[in-house]
Simulated assay, not measured.
Amino acid sequence: MHNQRTQSVHRVEFPVDWPPGHVACHLLGGEEPVLVDAGIPAAPEQETPADERFESTLERAEYGLGDIEHLVLTHPHVDHIGQVGAVLDAGDPTVYAPASVRERFTRAATALGERVRENAAAAGITGDALDNEVESAVESLERNRRLLPPDAVDEWLTPGEISFGPISGTAVHTPGHQADHLAYLLGYDGETLLFSGDTVMEPFRAVVIHDGMDDGYTEAFEAAFTALDRLEPHDPDRVFSGHGKPHEQFGEILDRDRSRLHKRLDAIEGLVDDGFETMPAVAAELARGRKPRYMYAETMSGLAHLDQTGRVESELVDGVRRYA
């Protein structure tokens, strides 16, 4: 599209309905442009598959969708893989994704639904709310593997050394927010840059979702702590995350997120001590007037972690796990 490609990081923001109001992907300019993550799907009323902001932002940086040579994904959440199809329609990039996504996407949706129903029911979710959680989990799996067809991925990445054309670095497995999540430390234009996806974000700590209400919920908090521990030895010059602006507060935000994970566990333990016996009861208190279901996955995971570490005790009573 242009004769002389500048070596710079170009940020593309897409509006979303949750704080801080946007999700971002990043284009590393150069002779082989690299796009890290791919935004949220275009609105249904749009005639083209590419979000207009996506195309116009790239055009201002003198790039087009067809110029992208490498498409690198941190994790398979809808707001990070939504424009994969648009990029593939425009060109022929090499597509990279975390290797464990391949196995996750081969899962039968019915099998996932069964596990979510069993786990959610044992957590105390009933009636329409239970049906909604199962439906949401199944729809998410089906939607995400439609947005990121496994056959479209050229290279499945594992933690360790990586390269995207002339750009090389390290992939770090950073689960907790999402079980397959990779963060990428890349040497670029004389700096070490961290493309952190939904970790080490300046505005807030990422919610602990991991694999939602699938069986991995019991390991989610430990995974989130592990992700921070894995990142800590690194010292990037700048951090480019999926939400919030780029920043240079790497160590400070790692410490903040670790502290906030501990505070969440303390808060959950405190509510159990105050007599809130079930996950939905604890989640409703944590939600503080917001919809409790958005706290369900993190609350389930927190209670499981506290149970495993002996800070609370649990027993199944009439099929529902109660805590004390």
Rank of each mutant, 00 (worst) to 15 (best):
R290H: 14
V23I: 05
R264S: 04
A122R: 15
L306S: 03
Y63L: 06
H10K: 09
T174V: 13
H177E: 05
E118R: 12
R102S: 02
R117S: 00
L148A: 09
P19Q: 13
G216Q: 13
A284I: 05
G310Y: 06
N3M: 14
M295D: 13
H22I: 05
R293H: 10
P175W: 08
A123C: 02
V320C: 03
V34A: 06
D266K: 13
T170W: 08
L194F: 11
A111F: 06
T106C: 07
T226S: 14
S163P: 00
S301T: 10
F225H: 15
D180V: 09
T110G: 10
H243M: 12
R53V: 12
H173S: 08
T6M: 09
A223T: 03
G310L: 09
E202A: 15
E285K: 15
G30A: 06
L261Q: 10
E62I: 00
T218C: 08
Q83I: 12
I81E: 02
S140N: 14
L303I: 01
R145P: 03
S140E: 15
E191Q: 15
A42H: 07
V272C: 05
A50S: 14
K291C: 01
G85R: 12
A123H: 00
T199C: 05
M1D: 05
Q308S: 11
V16L: 07
A287P: 10
A121E: 11
V101P: 01
E103I: 10
R260S: 09
G124R: 07
Y217W: 14
I268G: 00
H177D: 03
A206H: 07
E103F: 08
S301P: 06
I268R: 01
S241R: 07
F164Q: 04
L193P: 01
L316C: 05
L194W: 09
P166Y: 08
W156Y: 02
E133L: 13
I68M: 09
E13L: 14
P150Q: 02
G21S: 09
G127M: 09
M201V: 01
G242T: 00
M1N: 07
V87I: 14
V208Y: 11
L316W: 04
D318V: 07
